[in-house]
């Protein structure tokens, strides 16, 4: 019992269950899944699909944070990916063809990869502090996206491209299959090979790991490039969701949500040990939170407050120091009762 209780994901999972429970009390059948037009439909499916972009971004963020870094530019990368892809489709002669959609995806992801390499170069090769290095792209990136879309919200109609977000494969949303598929691949890659351990070594002590023969520069460079690539993929799903590239609002503040998901998942911002399953739980909590707000009918005026309270509660419950303090209080009371 104490093993379960002390598991680092215990409290985040409790929070997730509580949010779902709150929805169920308000709407008993909310977690039901039905089959509609040959695919699954229901709130859990919506959560899976809506969590896709954040999961991709948080996945990259977890790896970056593991190396003692941080990537603030993910939101801007999301906006750029959407802007590039939709502008590419809008300017092509056959916007509705599969080839155009694939071309758009390749061009957008390619550009995001280059942006990630730029971040990686600044951090790994020039030794600029990650928060500053990525701040450059965070501020400039939206400007780039605005330039690409000409300050307009670019909208296109392309059935193959919109499949990315709205389509279904084997009854499941394509967006969720992509995101969770990528998650599994990355998780296996870092946990079934030595890669994860090497990342942690770089995060715990870059100098020592370098002396021990770990190619820390290459590793750091790679995680930034990968993080941007994943953010680009998230941006494509985001843009395909509404088939509109909104340079101002696409992925706005997603960097903060991603950092939050990573922290809720139990990965320390100080780098080192990271926890991918924790990040997944964090992402699900944040996505479910949005649904809870709507289902409970919480007034928009207090929505941010409600979200903040949930987040504070989760992080407080996860704090070992607070739990020790509470345990100490209980202990003292028991002692006083015994002596009295």
């Amino acid at each position: 019992m104490t093993l379960i209780y002390k598991h680092r994901l215990f409290w985040p999972l409790v929070a997730l269950a509580a949010l779902l429970l709150a929805c169920t009390i308000k709407r008993p059948d909310i977690l039901g899944i039905t089959v509609l037009d040959g695919h699954l439909f229901g709130a859990p499916i919506d959560i899976l699909r809506n969590s896709a972009p954040l999961l991709l971004v948080s996945l990259g963020m977890t790896l970056v944070i593991a190396t003692r870094g941080i990537d603030l530019s993910v939101g801007a990368t999301v906006a750029i990916a959407g802007a590039v892809a939709l502008t590419f489709i809008a300017s092509s002669d056959h916007p509705a063809s599969v080839g155009t959609a694939l071309g758009a995806i390749i061009v957008a992801l390619g550009l995001c990869f280059i942006l990630g390499c730029f971040n990686g170069m600044l951090v790994a090769n020039f030794g600029i502090q990650p928060i500053i290095a990525t701040l450059i792209l965070m501020t400039a990136g939206r400007g780039v996206a605005m330039l690409i879309t000409n300050g307009q919200i670019t909208t296109v109609a392309s059935a193959p491209f919109s499949t990315l977000a709205s389509g279904f494969l084997l009854g499941l949303p394509v967006a969720a299959i992509i995101a969770y598929g990528v998650y599994l691949v990355v998780a296996l890659l870092v946990r079934r090979t030595a890669l994860g351990m090497l990342l942690e070594a770089v995060g715990i002590n870059p100098e020592a790991s370098r002396l021990a023969g770990v190619k820390s520069k290459t590793l750091v460079f790679t995680v930034y490039a990968l993080c941007a690539l994943l953010s680009g993929l998230a941006g494509l799903i985001f843009a395909a969701n509404t088939m509109a590239a909104d340079a101002n609002n696409a992925g706005l503040f997603i960097e903060l949500d991603a950092i939050l998901a990573v922290v809720i998942g139990g990965t320390s911002l100080a780098g080192g040990k990271f926890n991918l399953s924790g990040t997944l739980v964090g992402v699900l909590i944040i996505t479910t939170l949005s649904l809870t707000v709507t289902v409970l009918g919480i007034s928009p005026l207090v929505t941010s407050l409600f979200k903040a309270i949930v987040v504070i509660a989760v992080t407080l419950m996860m704090s070992t120091r607070l739990r020790t303090m509470l345990a100490g209080l209980r202990e003292r009371r028991r002692f006083q009762e015994a002596s009295a």
Binding site: D46, N50, F238, N249, P300
Partner: peptide, 19 residues
């Protein structure tokens, strides 16, 4: 609130349809 954006409108509407 859907924040005047498409993505916001879509997500909130999904919630409404569920609840």
């Amino acid at each position: 609130t859907g924040d005047f954006t498409r993505a916001g409108g879509k997500q909130v509407m999904e919630g409404f349809l569920n609840s």
